[in-house]
Amino acid sequence: MSSTKSGAFYEVLSPWAEADPIPLHGLAPRLDKLDGKKIGLLQNSKRAAPRLLDVTERLLKEKFPGIQTSRFRGKLFSVSAEEPERIQEFEDWLKGVDAVIAAVGD
């Protein structure tokens, strides 16, 4: 763009929309260790996601004796945002794990 100082002057309005502030949330407390815990492995429908978690699951079991894992397979890109009919199933699964490792394939 040229940086001419001549020409008419324009006082212009902002195109950037206002948005109301939303409530903020902090993170859940962390685990003290992974030994003996049950780790949820959450994948969405993207092709890389299950592959990432296959490797992760193997490494968890190699490095942490007594660890258990449990998979949840999303049918689309986000269970909570796109599969309302499975929310109860999702929450029941969450209740049964101590932490979650998620792969979104992106």
């Binding site: 859940a28 969450l94 979650v100 490792i101 792969a103």
Partner: peptide, 13 residues
Amino acid sequence: IYIENFGKPTATY
């Protein structure tokens, strides 16, 4: 976010 709000720690690739 949903899972953290549910009270479980997460790590997302």
